[in-house]
């Protein structure tokens, strides 16, 4: 039942990502990806502090009491940004997008299947394998579409 709310919410999350990347794309072209990412994270920090202080209900466990390894998420996000800065000039945006999406989906399905990092287990059943085949097709189409736009 909850997934009927959460899936549209995740779709909305993807939409915010697309809007953010077109605004940031313009900024990145003017000042570089690193400065753009820095601004995004600083603005994000400011807003998150306000949310924690004034919107979130008080929690039993504070952020500083959580295990340190759970706080390392941002290292992966920053690694992604730096990897893109260096790779896009070498392999092009089409190939880079495809590699990112493929990596993202592969790891997402693996984490679910093996219940890594304290997540619930969602096994790779035949339906998920069928979805993987469709996603491979989608990735191929995204590559072809980006390739066409890159060359035109």
């Amino acid at each position: 039942m909850l997934s009927f709310i959460l899936i549209p919410l995740a779709l909305l999350g993807g939409a915010t990502l697309a809007v953010q990347s077109s605004v940031n794309g313009r900024l990145g072209a003017a000042v570089g990806i690193l400065a753009t990412a820095w601004l995004t994270f600083v603005v994000g920090s400011v807003i998150s502090v306000l949310l924690v202080l004034f919107v979130q209900a008080p929690q039993d466990i504070s952020l500083l009491a959580a295990p340190r390894w759970q706080m390392t998420g941002a290292f992966f996000g920053v690694f992604y940004i730096v990897a893109m800065v260096f790779s896009v000039p070498l392999i092009g945006i089409a190939a880079a997008t495809v590699a990112v999406v493929a990596g993202q989906l592969t790891m997402g399905l693996l984490i679910d299947n093996f219940a890594w990092l304290g997540n619930q287990r969602i096994a790779l059943d035949p339906q998920r394998w069928a979805a993987i085949v469709l996603l491979l097709g989608a990735i191929a189409l995204i590559y072809l579409g980006n390739r066409k736009r890159e060359t035109s």
Binding site: Q70, G73, S87, A99, V100, G103, T106
Partner: peptide
Amino acid sequence: IVFAAGMGLSVEAGLLGPL
């Protein structure tokens, strides 16, 4: 490297949820 960076994005989400 880029594939690994993409995997990292899912690791980030996988760490965030339980946190």
